[in-house]
Nucleic acid binder design. Structure first.
Lengths: 191, 191
DNA sequence: TTTTTTATTGATCCGTCAGTCAATTTCCGG
DNA sequence: CCGGAAATTGACTGACGGATCAATAAAAAA
């Protein structure tokens, strides 16, 4: 039943399946067959549409990153003040969907993957730079050390994710509140 | 040349080799043969002294955790004030040796490993609880929300590690300074 | 000295998995 | 209606790695 124009559909299905599979397994040790099966196709087809396993992973990572980016961009649009912009960036990182254990898991795994895969590393670098730049820009009018505070917040966000990945308890709202709290503290004592 | 009493020596060598190997590779995808080779023995011997691959990993993790614990314990001994105790705990997490890329790498990998391995998970849980309890105890006299602040600091510490694992730049002193800065901010605005 | 225990390894089995390929089915343009 | 392109898969392979085991060597015990 080969319908035409299957490529984008198949690719999207594979990307989704990859994220779910990684998130559930909690490891990168998942087979192409598993992914393909969940996406409803043969492993050969997965290899057909992507070059290989690493390319599937990279595509999945790109997808997560781009979602996060879109989220942040959307929230930044409606933010008027500098403080609101910082909060918008933080909130974008802690949407309930992005904080879903499966996504958190996938996220952390990609982090580790970036140690091995050049593609993953490059993608993560880009994301980091963008996050840092966004934070810096938003912090500049209200922080005495925008650079340092941006890095602190970025580290904190990732750390909260990491804890979430391990504990599987705690809500997105809770996590966001914690980050906001630190932001308050940081701005309060800016010397 | 079988000398007697080799077991503890071999086990220690394997644990050390595992940490180095994981740290260098930046992934858990290392073979028992690699570890054994670095430790100067055959893979069969590694299997002989440990039950299997997972046990080797668990032992390596236990080793890292216990080092960290010892470090913290030692520093806590000489701390007089509550604030000094908190700082001691933070500093224990950022010793130059513990912040060595290889160790950071291994540490992060173990985090991920805890998603799959029950043993790893249990070990990490114990460590987390201990860290949290230590932080809480030290924070109680000086913080309005010891519980929350302890969790924030714990998350921050892990986040800084994560960033280090990715960037490979930045020093232990720098990282510690960042954590201390957040602590100051947190305590300064405690309401 | 003989036996048992500890140390040690090469060879090997077995399973898994990424990637390839040839074959098949369906669709579309000419 | 026909030939090529797209879609799709089952079967295969080549490699790798964890685990096992039988065999050897040396030290300790008997």
């Amino acid at each position: 039943m080969p319908k035409l124009g299957m490529e984008p559909i198949r690719r999207a299905a594979l990307v989704d399946a990859t994220i779910v599979e990684i998130g559930q397994a909690g490891t990168l040790d998942i087979t192409v067959s598993q992914i393909a099966k969940r996406a409803g196709m043969s492993s050969a087809l997965a290899h057909h549409y992507f070059g290989g396993k690493e390319d599937i992973f990279a595509a999945a990572m790109r997808h997560i990153l781009s979602d996060l980016q879109k989220e942040a961009q959307g929230r930044l649009k409606t933010a008027e003040t500098a403080l609101a912009r910082v909060r918008a960036i933080i909130d974008a990182c802690f949407t309930p969907v992005g904080f879903d254990p499966v996504n958190v898991n996938a996220w952390m795994i990609f982090y580790v993957q970036s140690r091995t895969s050049v593609k993953a590393r490059r993608l993560l670098r880009i994301y980091h730079r963008r996050l840092h730049s966004n934070l810096c820009h938003a912090l500049r009018p209200i922080s005495a050390n925008p650079e340092a505070d941006a890095e602190t917040l970025a580290a904190l966000i990732d750390g909260i994710y990491l804890h979430q990945a391990l504990s599987e308890t705690g809500s997105a709202a809770n996590a966001a509140a914690r980050a906001h709290g630190v932001l308050d503290a940081l701005l309060g004592t800016a010397q």
